[in-house]
Design a protein around this nucleic acid. Structure first.
Length: 420
DNA sequence: TCTGGGGTCCTAGGACCC
DNA sequence: TCTGGGGTCCTAGGACCC
């Protein structure tokens, strides 16, 4: 029989920091979102203090001081590299692997049952922990949704749980809150509550037609998965993105068009990198800007402008040029801007570009060579080693990252030091 | 009194995930 | 002073067509 195994890294960002700073072990620790805005990862000690994911830092500063919580800015370079290491290990156990997020993967396991299945999961868990230092939780079920539930149950216990052919499945689902089911968010939880559905067993046993009406076809799939019928298959090859967004809030408020231009050019460059990384070109580009909606006493402005490109492209120089024009069409002086972004849509494979009748192909080929050269340099020496002048030099609008740790695994000059 | 029926396509908005 | 970023999918409703 085939079943799904979810391997989930515990408090992933915090665990990454702890690998290289063992003094943090057992100490309350948090990692912040971009711009040091919100809490996005918490150690168990912090979860116990009642600090919720998504809490703005300034709203929990008292608790941070009182409990001497260790604070880190997001060190995405480090986390992405550690994630790659974890996934490489999982791949050695089975090629049937779906990397679901930076800290989670689904594995398809065939031909194992009962004790042998759990033993296999334990082996995976121990190997990842020994080789990377990242603690993981393993959940096993006959559908992805059940594997997710198993992982939640395993957390805080032995770290592994299998619901496959479990004799007390009804009891387990009765004790499992509907809000904790994968695919049931706060809105659906509230709606289900109004109909007296509070736990996973009640939802599993609800009639199909009613579920579809209330929660759409996706909700019905979730319910079927609760019954052990897989409806979400393993996606070993990630489908190419349909939209690519690159946006950031600014470390400092921005008012001048010049600075906004630099930021938007930088986001366009990032979007271009992502586009090329998946071998695509984009035909539709959107630029948006907005002031800080939380600053209610300031005058607010948000706007977006889009453009259907004359010819689909993945070329940074073109993207920057179009994005800048769009920005100029929506920029209004007199506002304090907090955020801007670039969105790419109508994404298709680079292999079959629709050549334009009116644009000769030669400059296009040249641009391509230049882009490949720049990507090569940046891949070798680090992001933005070489970049367009339009992206600016000082970049005052850059992220705030006051509590950043080192990029221990990807920079020679930031290697961990060992004192004897 | 009473004004059709059946399609397609697109977009905005809402729900979810990490 | 201070509130992240990047995705997915589905549905309802409007525009438009014959």
């Amino acid at each position: 029989m085939n079943c799904f195994m979810l391997v989930d890294c515990n408090n992933f960002y915090v665990s990454c920091e702890r690998v290289f700073n063992p003094a943090l072990e057992g100490k309350p620790t948090i990692v912040l979102s971009n711009n040091d805005g919100c809490v996005v990862a918490r150690s168990n000690e912090v979860k116990e203090l009642g600090i919720l994911r998504g809490t703005p830092l300034f709203k929990c500063e008292d608790l941070v001081k009182k409990h001497q919580i260790n604070v880190f800015s997001s060190n995405y370079t480090l986390y992405a590299d550690m994630s790659g290491r974890v996934m490489n290990i999982l791949e050695q156990f089975t090629p049937q692997l779906e990397i679901y997020s930076i800290d989670e993967a689904f594995l398809s396991i065939a031909g194992l049952e009962g004790e042998a299945l759990v033993h296999y999961g334990q082996n995976i868990k121990q190997t990842v922990e020994r080789w990377t230092g990242i603690p993981v939780t393993v959940g096993i079920g006959t559908s992805k949704t059940l594997a997710k539930i198993a992982a939640k149950i395993a957390k805080g216990k032995s770290g592994i749980c299998s619901l496959v052919a479990h004799p007390q499945i009804d009891e387990i689902l009765t004790n499992f809150a509907v809000a904790d089911i994968w695919g049931i968010g706060s809105q659906y939880t509230a709606r289900l509550k109004r109909y007296g559905i509070h736990n996973a067993k009640q939802l599993r046993d609800a009639p199909d037609r009613w579920v579809k009406k209330q929660l759409t076809i996706m909700g019905l799939r979730t319910v079927r998965e609760l019954r052990g019928i897989p409806c979400f298959p393993l996606e070993e090859i990630p489908p190419p993105r349909k939209g690519i967004v690159s946006s950031r809030s600014f470390g400092q408020p921005v008012t001048e068009l010049g600075e906004l231009r630099e930021a938007v050019a930088s986001y366009a460059a990032r979007a271009g990198e992502k586009l090329r990384a998946q071998g695509s070109i984009a035909g539709y580009l959107t630029v948006f800007v907005s002031t800080n909606p939380y600053q209610e006493h300031h005058s607010q402005y948000a706007n977006a402008a889009s453009l259907c490109l004359p010819m689909a492209t993945a070329n940074t120089r073109e993207l920057i040029s179009y994005a800048t024009k769009l920005l100029e069409s929506i920029y209004k002086s007199g506002y304090i801007y907090k955020k801007a972004g670039v969105v790419l849509n109508e994404i298709r494979p680079e292999s079959n570009p629709q050549l334009s009748l009116f644009i000769p192909p030669e400059p296009w080929q040249q641009n391509r060579k230049l882009t490949q050269l720049m990507d090569g340099i940046n891949a070798r020496w680090g992001r933005d080693t070489i970049h367009y002048g339009a992206q600016g030099i000082n970049q005052r609008w850059q992220l705030r990252r006051d509590y950043l740790s080192r990029r221990y695994t990807t920079r020679w000059d930031e290697l961990p030091e060992v004192k004897i």
